[in-house]
Design a protein around this nucleic acid. Structure first.
Length: 593
RNA sequence: GGGGCCGUAGUUCAGUUGGUUAGAACGCGUGCCUGUCACGCACGAGGUCGCGGGUUCGAGUCCCGUCGGCCCCGCCA
């Protein structure tokens, strides 16, 4: 008993109706978001991409339309003809709440099975149910808004990049496996049995080659793939704003990105101040205990190791001690302090000490061991005010060349800030991090590995230490951090073949190995490579922050679970034997060995 | 690879010390209702307690394994 669409044309979006449309005849099309049947009067909430409008069916005025409206159920697809009327009692909850549509005709275009959850923003369904029925989840206004925002941000970025003289160039999705870095997703070749393509972890080498090709300024909204374990802010396939330019200084790259970000943020009506702050990597670690510091609030760390020296024997701690002041934390209960200490341990602390700074005085269990004077100095160093709680954590000295106590304290800083609600909202604190070491020591591989990727440029005066003191070599890399989230990283690159060769030797690759892995790129480098550099920004993360979301899944149309599965499409999955045969692939599961 | 939380009706959850026929809310179905907007009222349907094994006279509840979701560490050049 379904109606056909026929020649019916939509005149307005339901969600776009306003008082100004009063008196107009309209045709709306959308989904039944709700129905309130009062008998001879039926109210239907009609939802489309732009929002919701209330439709009224009156048995006296339009008996046929009313009779049909009695058959409506949730998520039926309908077309409504009617007149926009001002409401006696407006609904301030709805953007269209000043008006309603008095229906003269109703066309039921399709029915719907009863959905597994009610489609509204105050979603109660589990993440699992939402992902399995993603097409229903995506009908929710919040996700519609997020995808609309994503579209507008990408559009604005493309406009800005174009105006800045960048060409968008597509690079292959089927490419070759990269030996360093993340695990590759492999794609078997039918034409070349036993050989594999890899999906790109990033277009890194291609964009550098585009600079060698003389494109001068390249960008791409690029899909990237990394077969690593997931997090709330990490998906196996994700999108980067990938940028590369020739003859740049670091400031040129920063300037381009600052302008692009400023324009992108205007999409949400935010005025981002440029240029962004800059900070040395070592300062970020020392002051915030993180290489992606959240600068929306203070609570800076203080290295109080010297003040603890007197208690090193008694307290039995190793390494150093970092302290910070938690605003208003003095009121935390005994139980909350115990939980805090648990948390510190889970972050890798050997021990946690606290000092309560009350108006009537400073109290701490540390006074016995370190003395009143030292306790007071620790509180002062942390910048504690009356009512604060000073938290000091001790941890084993070094991890990957950075002070672990600082990193633990940095995690405590974030934990406490969230717990005590001191993080302001609506604030955008961008910061460029520079001065990264070129290498970090890999304990698993027992060698120096590039902290970023092996094409990252090297500060000229450190070049001579490449072979003698690699740990002292600084890179030309940089990270862009926003509100404690790493948005992306980039560098001015190595453009000389001889320097690139030295770098490969420094990370333990023989010339033959380097040649077999990167041969084509090393060849390209010898044919007049211009100085070049760029950056790659996580677009999903950018939109996530702008949308105020805590998970990437809220800004990606079809995301994967923490086990990298698509619950809706049921991927990955097995394939028929014939398909494997054609690819010369034999499957042998690990636990069958 | 490791740690934490969770899995009971379509959905979100409750379920005592292991004990009769496993409950609530929302949703769903039927009926009534002309100003609702979380409509209201009445009645009703709806369960492989994730799955497998074990302990027990008896398991949603205890034990072991396994599968799935979320968060974190490792990992993510």
């Amino acid at each position: 008993m379904l109606d056909s669409l026929g020649n019916l044309k939509r005149t307005h979006y339901a969600g776009a109706l306003r008082a100004a449309h009063e008196g107009q005849s309209v045709v709306l099309m959308g989904w039944v978001a709700g129905r309130r049947d009062l008998g001879n009067l039926i109210f239907v909430d009609l939802r489309d991409r732009e929002g919701i409008a209330q439709i009224v069916f009156n048995k006296e005025a339009h008996p046929t339309a009313h009779w049909k409206a009695e058959q409506l159920r949730s998520e039926y697809v309908v077309a409504v003809e009617g007149r926009v009327m001002r409401r006696g009692k407006p609904n301030p909850e709805l953007a269209s709440g000043e008006v309603e549509v008095v229906a003269s005709a109703l066309h039921i275009l399709n029915t719907s099975a009863t959905p597994p959850f009610v489609i509204e923003d105050e979603i109660s369904a589990s993440e699992e149910t939402r992902l399995r029925y993603r097409y229903l989840d995506l009908r929710r206004p919040q996700l519609q808004n997020n995808l609309a925002l994503r579209h507008k941000v990408i559009l604005e970025i493309r406009r800005a990049m174009d105006e800045l003289g960048f060409y968008e160039v597509e690079t292959p999705m089927l490419t070759r496996a990269t030996p360093e870095g993340a695990r590759d997703y492999l794609v078997p070749s039918r034409v070349h049995p036993g050989q594999f393509y890899a999906l790109p972890q990033s277009p890194q080498i291609f964009k550098q080659i585009l600079m060698i090709s003389g494109l001068d300024r390249y960008f791409q909204i690029a899909r990237c793939f990394r077969d690593e374990d997931l997090r709330a802010d990490r998906q196996p396939d994700f999108t980067q704003l990938d940028v590369e330019m020739s003859f740049p200084t670091q400031d040129d790259v920063f300037g381009v990105i600052e302008q692009v970000m400023q324009r992108a943020w205007r999409v949400i009506g935010a005025d981002v101040k440029i240029p962004f702050r800059r900070m040395l990597h070592q300062d970020a670690i020392r002051r915030y205990g993180s290489d992606k510091p959240d600068l929306r609030f203070g609570m800076e760390l203080a290295d109080v190791t010297p003040l603890f020296e007197a208690g090193r024997e008694t307290l039995k701690f190793e390494g150093s001690v970092f302290a910070l002041a938690a605003p208003g934390g003095a009121s935390l209960s005994r139980k909350q302090l115990d939980e805090l200490a648990e948390k510190a341990k889970s972050f890798g602390a050997r021990a946690m000490y606290t000092i309560k700074v009350a108006p009537e005085g400073i109290t701490s269990g540390l006074a016995k061991t370190l003395g009143e004077e030292a306790v007071k100095k620790i509180a002062e160093a942390a910048g504690a005010k009356a009512g604060d709680l000073v938290v000091a954590v001790a941890a084993q000295k070094q991890i990957k060349g950075t002070d672990n106590a600082a990193l633990v304290a940095g995690q405590m800083r974030l934990h406490l800030a969230e717990k005590l609600r001191v993080i302001p909202s609506g604030q955008w604190d961008f910061v460029w991090l520079t001065g990264f070491p070129l290498f970090e020591w890999s304990t698993t591989e027992d060698r120096w590995v590039p902290a970023q990727h092996p094409f990252t440029g090297i500060i000229e005066e450190d070049l001579e230490k490449l072979e003698t003191a690699p740990w002292e070599v600084r890179s030309k890399g940089y990270d862009l951090v926003l509100n404690g989230v790493e948005l992306g990283s980039g560098s001015v690159r190595i453009h000389r073949a001889d320097v690139q060769a030295r770098l490969f030797r420094a990370i333990g690759l023989s010339d033959e190995q380097a040649r077999s892995r990167f041969g084509f790129f090393l060849d390209a480098l010898t044919y007049g490579t211009p100085p070049h550099g760029g950056i790659a920004l996580g677009l999903d993360r950018t939109v996530m922050l702008m949308a105020g979301e805590k998970s990437l899944r809220e800004v990606i149309a079809f995301p994967k679970t923490t086990a990298a599965q698509d619950l809706m499409a049921d991927a990955p999955n097995t394939v028929p034997q014939e398909q494997l045969d054609e690819l010369s692939i034999q499957v042998r599961l690990k636990n069958e060995e």
